[in-house]
């Protein structure tokens, strides 16, 4: 699902840009004209994956819609760090909703635009995993089943980071958070809980569902662009590592996103009307340890004693994803 057709062996298709490419073939992020929808001066932590993912996604959406875009934003890190009243980092029309109703607010905007006949203006709703998979889930499901003309983007950093790293239904098993401490017989978040919202979105049979990470900007941009070419309910779930909440070095944000996909723990795919249509294959497969080790939220799996059984269960999850989405073999379609 790598989204460039041109092969440059120096950097292949993996770098953000390439001076040898025609302008029209370059990623949005490589152009001097990118919107910088989320501008400098925001208060996100060093190396924030969410700030990065939001700029990647919204800049691409801006280009896809010829800058005719309105965004609704659930409460969460993204809203807090970008817009402490009266300052904002957003350089687009942007509205802050409640924690739980970004999908409903976006639906309202889309309907109002339709009523006013402004069909050229498109609507994006965005939120973190807390605002999407937990608190805003009812509104989100409603937006899906009504097939409202909204692209909902979830920036998943796997916990409530803004309020102090509490567990969400997107927190992975074994991860330490403020509410899943490293105590008891099964330290960290328990296995067998949580939900997989991309698959739930697919179950609504909406026109378009995709996952992506901040490690592959071309792929993310291509998915946003494709989503903006479709009308109806669309959902993109972007993995955005959080240095603070994951206990990782700020410079490892992109690397961790890459390891999440290369280990199979976070499958990158797209689906149309409930069926998987494409996936990014693993290029350099790694064991889950390589992804887990740099993160302090998983430190208890390695010290004081190696928790081989727990790691094996996480590896089994990755292996299941690899089987389910056929991540190891064959060419990707695009």
């Amino acid at each position: 699902m790598r989204s460039s057709h041109v092969k440059f062996y120096q950097t292949g298709t993996f770098t953000v840009g390439n001076r040898l490419l025609n302008d029209s073939d370059r990623s949005v992020q490589s152009t001097m004209e990118r919107t910088n929808s989320l501008n400098s001066g925001h208060r996100a932590c060093q190396g924030c994956g969410e700030a990065l993912g939001a700029r990647y996604a919204i800049d691409a959406a801006m280009r896809a819609t010829d800058n005719q875009l309105i965004a609704a934003n659930a409460t969460g890190c993204l809203e807090v760090f970008s817009t402490p009243y009266p300052e904002t980092s957003w350089q687009i029309p942007w509205i802050h909703s409640l924690f739980g109703n970004a999908a409903a607010v976006a639906t309202g905007i889309a309907v109002a635009l339709r009523v006013k006949g402004r069909t050229g203006t498109r609507v994006v709703a965005q939120g973190g995993d807390g605002g999407t998979t937990d608190i805003g889930f009812g509104c989100l499901s409603g937006m899906f089943e009504r097939n409202d003309d909204v692209l909902y983007i979830c920036y998943d950093n796997e916990a409530y980071m803004n309020t102090g790293v509490q567990r969400s239904s997107a927190t992975p098993p074994a991860a330490r958070t403020a509410t899943t401490q490293v105590v008891g017989p099964q330290p960290g978040n328990v296995f067998g809980q949580g939900k997989n919202v991309p698959r739930i979105a697919m179950a609504h049979e909406i026109p378009y569902v995709a996952t992506a990470t901040v490690a592959d900007v071309r792929d993310l941009e291509a998915k946003v662009t494709k989503a903006m070419s479709i009308h109806g309910a669309r959902y993109i779930h972007v993995l955005v590592p959080c240095p603070l909440g994951w206990g990782a070095a700020p410079h490892d944000t992109v690397k961790l996103a890459r390891l999440a996909t290369e280990s199979g723990l976070f499958p990158v795919f797209e689906a149309e009307h409930g069926e998987v249509t494409d996936r990014s294959t693993i290029r350099r497969q790694v064991a889950v340890e390589e992804y887990l080790k740099p993160q302090r939220r998983f430190a208890h799996l390695f010290k004081p004693t190696l928790q081989s059984e727990v790691i094996a269960r996480l590896q089994a999850q990755a292996d299941r994803n690899i089987r389910r989405y056929n991540l190891l073999s064959g060419e990707t379609h695009r």
């Binding site: 440059f8 992020q29 490589s30 700029r55």
Partner: peptide, 28 residues
């Protein structure tokens, strides 16, 4: 084009892209 340009910028735009703070200026 197989050269990896070790140690010398070859303008791949990666720094410009991955900065979460738009703190890299692309000069052309």
């Amino acid at each position: 084009r197989r050269c990896m340009s070790c140690g010398n910028c070859f303008e791949c735009d990666t720094c410009y892209g991955v900065c979460p703070d738009n703190a890299v200026n692309k000069l052309g």
